[in-house]
Design a protein around this nucleic acid. Structure first.
Lengths: 143, 143
DNA sequence: TACAATAGTTGCAATATTCAACTAATTTGT
DNA sequence: ACAAATTAGTTGAATATTGCAACTATTGTA
């Protein structure tokens, strides 16, 4: 399987370092400017994305429910997230971002996207389209 | 910047989840079958890749030197890594994989690559080449 | 109604992580 | 040549993170 091998090679050469750099960038902005751990930032991101319960956060982030609960605790103490007990099923606690939480998340994203755009702009228009198309393909096979 | 935006969108939709799945796969194999933490596995990988000192591991893995030192300690205790003091500069300690370490790393990689190949084989030959080319481009702009 | 299942939180023990101090070896400035 | 600075690595102690198990509270089910 020679073609497959070279694609696998490219995958290993590309995806981990690209993500590591991106993650390091997120960490730098989130931690050094806002005092958030990466886990806390991820939780904010996931809450915004609609994973608004402790269990959903735990599953998405591959951490235990107890840890997820404590991460949420820290975010609530910082005033970035609110807990709201579901009226219909009082076992559920709905998490949502406060205004402050939204602002922090937007700020981190804005800085990270500026950083990302600077790199992606090194591609020509043609190359951009090519990469975008390829990423769609890649995403599809990982669904 | 409409084209750029869509590439950035694709990036966020693709790279983090693809890597998260890959990482989860590594973790599953490394931890559940070999009792390695992800950090320990990463250290093995980096030592094989030539980052064969405690400082190099610390820098690559973005962890403190003291922690890197302890991770190496654990690997040495398990017989997966050896320490060898440099004869010329006796401050340096060269790390290398033992046979057992190589075998463990190969086993983890083999299982992970089988998993990866199963996904990438969903692509046609043309698509494979397209994705491989795009990954090269992406890698280039992140160097 | 009793029993099981689900969502979440907390106590506790085991690990992991960091900061600072430390040893040891080498390099540098004078 | 030699004191001071630098580099590599390790360790102690304080702190934080994590996972397991136990717990409360609520809802679903036989």
């Amino acid at each position: 399987m020679p073609e497959g091998d070279s694609l696998i090679e490219r995958f290993w050469e590309t995806v981990p370092p690209v993500w590591r750099q991106t993650r390091a960038q997120i960490r730098m902005v989130a931690h050094e400017r806002f005092g958030l751990t990466v886990e806390q930032f991820q939780a904010l991101r996931r809450i915004r994305h609609g994973h608004n319960s402790v269990s959903a956060l735990a599953e998405e982030g591959r951490l235990s429910r107890s840890q997820a609960s404590r991460v949420v605790d820290a975010l609530v103490r910082r005033g970035l997230v609110t807990r709201l007990t579901d009226a219909k099923d009082r076992r559920h606690v709905h998490l949502s971002l406060t205004e402050s939480g939204k602002q922090v998340l937007s700020a981190v994203f804005a800085e990270t996207e500026a950083w990302l755009a600077k790199r992606l702009q090194l591609l020509s228009k043609d190359e951009s389209e090519q990469v975008a198309a390829a990423l769609s393909l890649l995403r599809r096979v990982f669904d």
